[in-house]
């Protein structure tokens, strides 16, 4: 394999594995900026992956090759509906955020495998989808010497979309009124409330965006990587996204970058066979790397309060 081919393979595999993490990690950032901790990202991804697969299997004869892309939207919408549970529990009913998020993680696999058995004759996994999201080669950009071959040939279109979503989220959170208000209720809800900002409304918005993006993230997983749904379709990607969000210091672009880095860590076991020097390293070190790095980064960032100030704090309006 030539160097260009190796780079192309590494780059495209990285992006394929990074795409689900990017969407979900950005979603997590929205939720936490509004002040609601979301450890239920794993559960949201499971629901997204499941609903996207069911939609794909049911409607592939109608929509043809557009089906997997529509499935992503379906995954996002179902993700919103599922995440509503977390929003109502934490915002309206003042539940502990970690407990409620854990409920999402417990409920999602139970519910989705339950439904899988009902829909697919008692089987614990769905059939393989016919139409999936495959490689994409950008029409003109490939002609750029060297870079064209590495970055734009046989790569993951959905990952490029995810990066664009990351940029858009940065703009939304930091440059628009809605974003500033959303962040204000996560920093100091009482002050935001005095200024007439509806704290609960913006918190719902933040949590539900995490449902949308987490659902899409899960759907990307099932539509481009596993190609079916079973209980092991999502195995830790939600938690890895949470880690990426923290590694990226709660910033959408930081989260995107961290997710791409974790994608690289996930792709290394697959491509390491082609890379001299990495051949003899056991896969386990690549598998645990993202988690170790997250802990190290957290420890190094000591003292810098990067999480939104009121993250995880229920806002209870004074009753007097």
């Amino acid at each position: 394999m030539g160097t260009t081919m190796i780079l192309m393979t590494v780059f495209s595999t990285t992006l394929i594995y990074a795409a689900p993490l990017i969407f979900t990690a950005i979603g997590g950032a929205f939720s936490e900026h509004s002040g609601i901790i979301n450890v239920g990202l794993e559960g949201i991804m499971i629901v997204g992956a499941f609903s996207a697969t069911v939609f794909n299997l049911a409607f592939v004869s109608v929509f043809g090759s557009a089906t997997p892309w529509l499935s992503l939207l379906v995954g996002g919408v179902v993700g919103i509906v599922f995440t509503l549970l977390h929003a109502v529990a934490t915002i309206t009913l003042r539940a502990n955020h970690i407990i409620s998020g854990t409920v999402l993680n417990l409920l999602a696999p139970a519910l989705c495998v339950f439904l899988t058995r009902i829909f697919y004759h008692g089987n614990g996994q769905t059939p393989i989808i016919d139409q999936s999201i495959g490689n994409f080669t950008f029409p003109w950009l490939t002609k750029i010497p060297l870079l064209g071959a590495i970055l734009f040939t046989k790569t993951s279109l959905v990952a490029y979309l995810a990066v664009i979503v990351g940029g858009a989220s940065w703009y939304l959170l930091y440059k628009t009124n809605i974003g500033l208000r959303l962040r204000s209720v996560g920093e100091n809800p009482a002050a935001a409330d005095t200024l007439g900002i509806n704290v609960n409304w913006y918190r719902y918005l933040g949590v539900l965006i995490s449902g949308l993006l987490g659902g899409i993230g899960g759907a990307v997983m099932s539509q481009s990587i596993t190609l079916n749904f079973s209980v092991s379709t999502i195995s830790g990607q939600g938690f890895m996204s949470l880690a990426a969000m923290i590694f990226g210091k709660w910033h959408p672009m930081g989260a995107t970058g961290a997710a791409i880095f974790f994608g690289l860590a996930q792709s290394l076991p697959i491509v390491s066979g082609y890379i001299p020097g990495l051949k003899n390293i056991n896969d386990v070190w690549f598998q645990i790397a993202p988690y170790v790095i997250t802990i190290v980064v957290l420890v190094i960032f000591l003292g810098k309060a990067v999480a939104p100030a009121a993250d995880g704090v229920n806002y209870i309006k004074s009753e007097k």
Binding site: A89, L93, R94, A95, N96, V103, A110, L111, R117
Partner: peptide, 19 residues
Amino acid sequence: PTEIVDIVIASIIFFVGIR
């Protein structure tokens, strides 16, 4: 499907959470 039991368990914790 036996998964109904896990749905029940998750629901119980949900209700404990919204005490």
